[in-house]
């Protein structure tokens, strides 16, 4: 009886947004009288960071510091329609809507600034620190705050913008499945190292190594959060979780967290992540999305690592110790593959 180590790999891609499109999101952006901006949405932040990423997109597009923007969501009386936070669509769909709204607001802001500085709006640029100046002449400058005051109290302009992003709904062919499912895809390669105990069937995940391509990491800390948390969920799906352990037999289903297994803080392992950025032509600053696909490659990578370690294939999830032991018994014991 022994413990055997093995490595497994999986490579995947993932479509961004609802399949076939037809899932719009809207955004509103407006300035208060002293040049602080509000983004108004009906999109949901369920932990993925919707408020934060749309805030950065708005600040970048407006050309103001991120501290000067706050995102208000979600109130159906004030926030315009959003399809919802699912299908890895938030960053791509809502982000684009926010960009469009921020561009419109920025155009008014630049016109108002031009009127104050008595120049052409096309000659102006933002410095990203709260001021607008003539290109090549930083001393001919006006604070965004003063632009907003002027727009509101002297010029009678609304520094505001509306945005919508819609990938038009496409059809699917009944006979061939021809369709336009998505406009862009994220990618990943995931390598996992496991240790399999051939006496207990227990599988320990020792190390994860991954490379994800996401278009653009709009906020690398938020990307890291999702990838690290998502890989934990993938490991959990691979080895632990099920409400029906003997599916399709419905008996023995867990009813609460005492019976529904997930890896705890003592079951995790180091995860070495690399992020690649190949911008999507229609993503906000090239960004795609990662909320869902971060978990997907872990499941097969773990299964493949178990094969590499002990030579058995378990084709049914989750790969519980019971299934590993049954497979080992059928195989006549562990047969480690050539080391990787």
């Amino acid at each position: 009886m022994a413990k055997h180590r093995g490595r497994g790999v999986a490579t995947i891609n993932y479509p961004i947004g609802m399949n076939l499109g037809g899932d719009p999101s809207q955004a509103l952006v407006h300035s208060n009288p002293t040049g602080k901006f509000t983004v108004t949405l009906s999109s949901i932040d369920l932990g993925q960071g919707m408020k934060s990423v749309t805030r950065q997109i708005c600040a970048e597009t407006l050309g103001v510091p991120v501290e000067d923007v706050f995102v208000d969501t979600a109130d159906s009386d004030t926030g315009p329609h959003c399809m919802g936070s699912f299908a890895s669509r938030g960053t791509h769909r809502v982000g684009n809507a926010v960009m469009m709204a921020a561009r419109e607001a920025r155009a008014v802001m630049m016109e108002a600034a031009a009127e104050e500085l008595e120049v052409d709006p096309a000659d102006l640029e933002t410095d990203g620190r709260g001021a607008i100046h003539v290109k090549g002449a930083p001393h001919r400058s006006i604070a965004v705050r003063d632009v907003a005051i002027a727009a509101q109290f002297r010029q009678g302009r609304t520094i505001a913008g509306r945005g919508i992003f819609l990938v038009p709904l496409s059809d699917v062919d009944a006979e061939t499945g021809e369709m336009t499912p998505a406009t862009c895809y994220a990618h990943a390669c995931f390598i996992v190292e496991v240790e399999v105990d051939d006496e207990t069937g227990d599988v320990a995940v020792l190390k994860m190594t991954s490379a994800y391509e996401l278009g653009r990491a709009l906020n690398p800390k938020l990307v890291e959060q999702q990838l690290v948390g998502g890989s934990w969920m993938g490991m959990s799906h691979a080895l632990y979780e099920t409400p029906e352990p003997y599916y399709p037999d419905t008996r023995e289903g867990p009813r609460d967290f005492n019976e529904y297994l997930m890896p705890g803080p003592g079951d995790i392992c180091p995860h070495d992540v690399a992020v690649l950025e190949r911008p999507a032509s229609d993503g906000p600053f090239g960004a795609k999305g990662l909320g869902e696909m971060c978990a997907n490659p872990v499941l097969p990578a773990v299964a493949n690592a178990i094969f590499n370690a002990v030579g058995v294939r378990v084709n049914e999830l989750p790969i519980t110790p019971e299934k590993v032991l049954r497979a080992l018994k059928a195989r006549g014991g562990a047969v480690p593959a050539r080391a990787r």
């Binding site: 805030r55 950065q56 970048e60 991120v66 995102v71 990491a217 906020n219």
Partner: peptide, 9 residues
């Protein structure tokens, strides 16, 4: 602002 590890709102 894009690409910065800005704190979550």
């Amino acid at each position: 602002e894009i690409g910065q590890p800005t704190q979550r709102q």
